[in-house]
Amino acid sequence: SIKDSVKLCNFNCSQSQGITVQAIDDSRVLLIALKIDAGSFQEFRCDKDLVLGLDLESLSKILKQGNNEEYLTLMAEDSPDNLMAVFEDKKKDRISEFSLKLMDIDSDVLTIDDMETDCTITLPAYEFAKIAKDMKTLSESLKIVVTKDSVKFNAEGQIGTGSVILKPHTDMDKPEESVKIELNSPVALTFGAKYLNDIVKATSLSSTVTIKLTDKSPALFEYKLPSGYLRYYLAPKFDD
């Protein structure tokens, strides 16, 4: 989900936190925070805190070697030069092993405090992905306007304009289809459509996305994982 935004990033491993990643995209507009709790894994053991510097394109090449139904074990020594990946198909007695070179990656780590938010919107992840993709064809900016009655996505481009308005509703049978708006104060923010399209690459990870917006502050887009999260912080655009 994030390899088109960042190429190199540090995977921090610890027994208490599981795996955490913080990375900033090359254009310095998007901050990515990933947390995969230890409970996400069938087995997780980390005797000593480790930082694994990975090239995501290379990692992706290794991960594609395995089939979906295979077991994957990732292993690193105490002061590792390599990350080992072992795929096992227990039915077929097939084992494949790969080793990926680790890298020393210099990256700034930023402190992310819990932010006060003007509004929180939860909507189906596929719905947000469609809006982000469709609106990008009209304009390189997307304005999100939230009131207590609706959230409006608005694009103004050279060929014309477009908007999608979603009103809050609760789907009893399929809660993940609901649209929820929690509002402290109305907000209107503009974001780069390119970055929103990078964010929606996480759509397959979660049925819903939660968007937290605050005036003149970065937006938070959160995809909840079964045990953890993938969060994107996107700086808004301002009128010059």
Partner: peptide
């Protein structure tokens, strides 16, 4: 015209 600030301007370095 719109300006796109860096995300780094919003968060403190650790």
């Amino acid at each position: 015209d719109e300006k796109q600030p860096s995300i780094k301007t919003f968060f403190m370095p650790e």
